[in-house]
Nucleic acid binder design. Structure first.
Lengths: 255, 255
DNA sequence: TGTAAGCGAATTTTCGAAACTTCCCGAACT
DNA sequence: AGTTCGGGAAGTTTCGAAAATTCGCTTACA
């Protein structure tokens, strides 16, 4: 059996976060709340790629001031979920197959790296959280095209929690930070895939869970790699309009 | 330790740089200027690690409003150069040896990955820029402790330009993005090392330049890896007070 | 008919002040 | 002596409006 390190319970979920980069703006009440809601709206394509983000509409939608919006938008820009051009305001970051391929390649490295390290430093509490997160995920079937949005959102939430639980004991704050950013980026494409999904996939999460709990580093890494690559292939073949170019109609010409 | 997985870089097909993540907030005039100046001040430890960033002082120093400052600070937080706690405002991100070790490990991967890809896609213009950047760097000797700050800053600027030129033709926008963020993080530690440097190092940049221009991927990667690790070792042994913990001295009273 | 300039509306950017929270210090009480 | 409570100051967060800029439409002209 795998060797279980005895650690104080306190260090279960929070991993040696000594000098970790700060993923989140801090629970700054209003700003943080707006940021979270906007991020979710971009990830779930309520705010569509390349869509212009005017302050007038945003102010109405999120019921807040321009200053607060500006701060949240500024944060989204550094996460790569929004863009800004001097004098032209903000817009949702574009998507493209090239982008998805690129970020997925990096994801393969970061997910395997963090997962291997997490398995190495796994604890009982870590295993328990994985079991719990998988249980919650498995209670919902992967959503289909005609499922209501609320169901899709809940599934996406549990899906994220499961994957986060796998790497929770990784000891590299920077790896976790970048992994998290890329995972969120990928969520946009996952959402599109979910919307248009025709094919069904076998339960890769169960395999992954068992491999991780068995502390099989090689198998776990191979599974997560395959998991990522399969998703890319599925998106490439089943999401209409996901082309190699940025999908941005260069210059608007009249007519 | 931490063996580098040799990945098929070719799989990153021709990625048009169209969908690159936006490193920069955009040349938003005021905000961007303040952001750049603050970042430089943090990198060069004018604003010291863990230092509290009060709006009163900042407003005076950068001659701008709270709103603008807030936006710049918010951006620095997502870059990992600042922190914020609800209701307690902002502060400069702490430093520690653990942090430097962690980010350097990731840097080794990202620098080698981007460098290998850049060499594969190198052009004449790319080579020319490397030659030019190296020339400018070599005109200044690595600064010593007693050199004026302006000299140190200029050297740091040229040093960054040289390293940026090496990877300029890399086709992976996300890899470049994260490489850039980590390079800036490392600059804080480089600055500290420069301040306290006792030992001198051989001219690693010349070796690196020649290996890259010779399109020798393996040698180039080995050299950049050694370059990074040597810097870490030098900082660990020569920078006083750079310990493994977060180095956060609980309470700080102004004096 | 095509091009360029000009004007008005819409939008973004910047700012200073009001509202709110936290922190510090002294006084009263156990 | 130590602890708790309260008042005041310092600092942060949020907001709406003023200033600056861009965009689209109309008009003038070759």
């Amino acid at each position: 059996m795998a060797r279980i390190l005895k650690m104080p319970l306190e260090t279960t979920t929070r991993v040696a976060a000594t000098t970790a980069p700060q993923d989140v703006l801090a629970e700054d009440a209003a700003t943080f709340d707006v940021l979270r809601r906007m991020r979710e709206d971009i990830l779930c394509c309520v705010l569509k790629p390349d869509q212009r983000l005017r302050f007038g509409e945003l102010r109405q939608r999120y019921d807040t001031s321009v200053g607060t919006l500006r701060e949240a938008l500024s944060h989204l820009v550094s996460e790569g979920l929004a863009r800004t051009e001097a004098g032209r305001g903000f817009s949702v970051a574009p998507i493209s197959l090239a982008d998805f391929l690129d970020l997925s390649e990096l994801r393969v490295y970061l997910e395997t790296r963090t997962l291997a390290d997490a398995i190495h430093h796994g604890t009982d509490a870590w295993e328990a959280e994985i079991v719990s997160a998988y249980f919650l995920l498995s209670k919902l079937k992967p959503p289909r095209t005609d499922d209501p949005v609320a169901v899709k959102r809940e599934w996406a939430k549990r899906h994220k929690r499961f994957h986060d639980s796998l790497v929770a004991t990784c000891t590299s704050p920077w790896s976790l930070h970048f992994r998290s950013e890329l995972f969120d980026q990928a969520r946009r494409y996952h959402w599109l895939t979910m919307i248009h999904a025709r094919s069904r996939r076998p339960n890769e999460h169960l395999e992954l869970r068992d491999a991780v709990l068995a502390r099989d580093v090689d198998l776990s890494c191979r599974l997560i790699e395959k998991h990522i690559r399969t998703t890319v292939e599925q998106a490439a073949s089943e999401v209409p309009g996901l082309t190699m170019d940025a999908g941005r109609p260069g210059k608007r010409r009249r007519g």
